[in-house]
Amino acid sequence: MAIDQATVRKIASLARIAISDAEAAAMEGELNGILGWVEQLGEVDVTGVEPMTAVIPNKLRLRDDVIDADPMTGGNRRDDILANAPAPQHGFFGVPKVIE
């Protein structure tokens, strides 16, 4: 199904990407080209076929409930967490004021 510029704009808004009118116009063609091409999948008979969930047979492992067992996945590293922040504020991340 072909998408129009309004749809392009809606998708861009969902994806939080600002686009100009010219970009929306250009994308309309590109996206339709790609979507039209991937739509050939519709012709495959998938009756009784399960969607793939794990590409290689493997079981989901669960980890033990231990705090900071591995510093790479544990807490207590605020400096590292904030090191690249555009607007660190007294140990917080600063963002434009949000009205809830």
């Binding site: 544990g74 807490g75 605020r78 917080f92």
Partner: peptide, 15 residues
């Protein structure tokens, strides 16, 4: 592995 305890200093229990 970050802790879940209530009331910690901001962003200290963040991995």
């Amino acid at each position: 592995g970050a802790a879940t305890a209530f009331g910690a200093e901001p962003n200290t229990q963040v991995s």
